[in-house]
Every structure is written in C-alpha cells, then in structure tokens.
Design a binder for these strands. Structure first.
Lengths: 144, 144
DNA sequence: TGCTGTAGTTACCCAAAGGTGAGAAATGGC
DNA sequence: GCCATTTCTCACCTTTGGGTAACTACAGCA
C-alpha cells in the first residue's frame, strides 16, 4: 500500500482532508463559544484519549485488558480514568457482563466515531508532514 | 451570522469537515509510523500551542506582547516556551527587529497554516457536538 | 536623574498528572 | 483449601507543568 492512512480512514475522509491544505485566513469569533470549545478540545485532545479513540475505531468492541495491552505504556489507573471520562462524554459505551471473573466491553458510540473522523485531518497532516517537521527541527537545532 | 466557525475557517474547509461525520471503520497500520505520528500529535495537541496557532491564523502577524494579551491566562514563561517550540517545529517564523525597545514579530509559516486547517474538522466537531457532550455528562452524573 | 517599555531569562516553588503496588470480590479448577 | 482470573479502587510517591517574581539591556522622555 502506498499510504498507511488508507487502511485507517475511508478514502472519502482522506480526500476531504487534502482540501484543508489551502484555505483563507479567518476573522473574529464569539468568545463565549470559543471558550466552551477550547475547554472541550482541551479535554478531548489528550494523549490517552486519542490513542484509545483510534484503537476502538480500528478494532471495534474490546474489553478492558485488551485495550490495556494494545495501548502501549498506559497504566491501569490511566486506562480506567480515560475510559470513564470518555464514557461520561458519551464517546463510548461500557457494557458490564455480570459474570465472574468480570467482563466489561467497550465500544465507540456514533459520537465517538464522528470524533475519530474529525481527527482524520490531523492524522493526515501529521503523516504527511512528519519529515518536514523533523527537517525543521534539525535545522533549528543546528543553528548557533 | 448563523455559525461562528464561518468567520474562522473558509466555507470550503467547513463543507469538507461535514463529510467526516460518516466514514468506514478502518483496519491495521504500520506501527512504526503510528508511533512517530503519535509522538508528533502529542507534541502539537497541547493547550497553548492550539490557542497560539488559532490566534495567529486569525490575526496574521503579531508581536510577543500582543499574543500574550490575547491568549487568556498564558504566562510569559509559557508563551516563550510555546513560541520557541513552534518555531523549532517550523510552524511559525520569529523575526527580530534590532531596535530598542525590542520588537519581535511572529507569523505562521505555510506549514503552520496547514496544521491550523487540519484542525478545522475538530473545531467543527466540537462546536457542533458541544451540547450533545454536555447532555451526555449530565445524564452520566445523574445516574446512581 | 530616573522612570517606562519590550522581550526575554533564571531561580524558586506549588499543584496536578501520572506511576506503582496492594487489595477486593467471586467463582471455577486443581 | 488455595490459586488464578478480571476489573477495578485506593494510598503513596515521583515527575512534570506551569506560575511568580526578580533581573537585563538600551533608548526615549520628563
């Protein structure tokens, strides 16, 4: 495959993300909405949330330990915390099966799916500009 | 205006972001690229970087104190730190005018502009789903 | 003479994020 | 009777993020 992202997002999403590369400078905005949106983005755009979001988007329904094994470096505490927060925000459903040992399934809601899709543009950007950023850093670090 | 985001992003970008709401579940991806992209996103998606990015996108070229005044709550230290990091990543240019008192101008590079555009989908999502998320939280908090 | 303004740097400190390890509860298997 | 399994919670501790305040350099201005 030419582009790894083609296996993650629908071709449609990727095609649309390409358009982002040329757009007009904007003007002012309602500061009240701005602050609410900022708060929401600050909550959502943290490392673990992003990783869990993408994993569930990829794999569908998973249980607690499966997620823990596949999200590299996450501790039990942070996994619980992240999942609770995402459940509270309506991004995923948590299904407890009353068996022993316990079994809890996690899956994205449509809202979670749409958030994952919204981040498609950022993933596309990151993948496309990875080397540009690396080069910029090297140049910056090399100057006196 | 019906939609505040219309003043921030080009109509074209917003139209494309709408398409993100329906897309197919994806499959696997090269883990090496995945880790690099994750690292890059983790670096970029922090609160202050996002706010400075959007401000410069809105206002064009600004000097140090102008940014400090308009990014609510940022300290001098964090502002310097954020701007340096963004400059290092090639997202903005820093132009020092050798006058006294000092004058330093900051402006986004094309790379910075494209990153701001890539986040358009997320802003659109956040604005559109603000109330859905609030409602989900209220429901979650109300259950025993 | 001394105050003002810009764009920082540095040192010190506090609070929050996050890691570690223990325990809990219930049941099936040895 | 005891151990493993699963999904947590809790207590404790370290690391990091980030705030505050002091200090710089130089020119203009009163």
């Amino acid at each position: 495959m030419a582009n790894p992202l083609q296996t993650r997002f629908a071709a449609d999403d990727i095609a649309q993300a390409e358009h982002y590369l040329a757009h007009e400078p904007p003007t002012d905005i309602d500061p009240r909405i701005e602050r609410l949106v900022n708060e929401l983005i600050g909550r959502i755009a943290d490392k673990w949330t992003l990783l869990v979001l993408e994993l569930l988007e990829e794999k569908g329904t998973l249980r607690f330990t499966q997620i823990g094994r596949q999200v590299e470096g996450i501790s039990q505490k942070m996994l619980t915390q992240t999942l609770r927060q995402m459940e509270r925000d309506g991004l995923l459903t948590r299904t407890v099966h009353p068996v022993v040992p316990p079994r809890v399934d996690y899956a994205l809601t449509p809202l979670g799916n749409s958030l994952s899709a919204a981040f498609c543009g950022v993933w596309v950007w990151a993948e496309r500009n990875l080397e540009t950023v690396e080069a910029a850093r090297a140049t910056f670090d090399a100057r006196d």
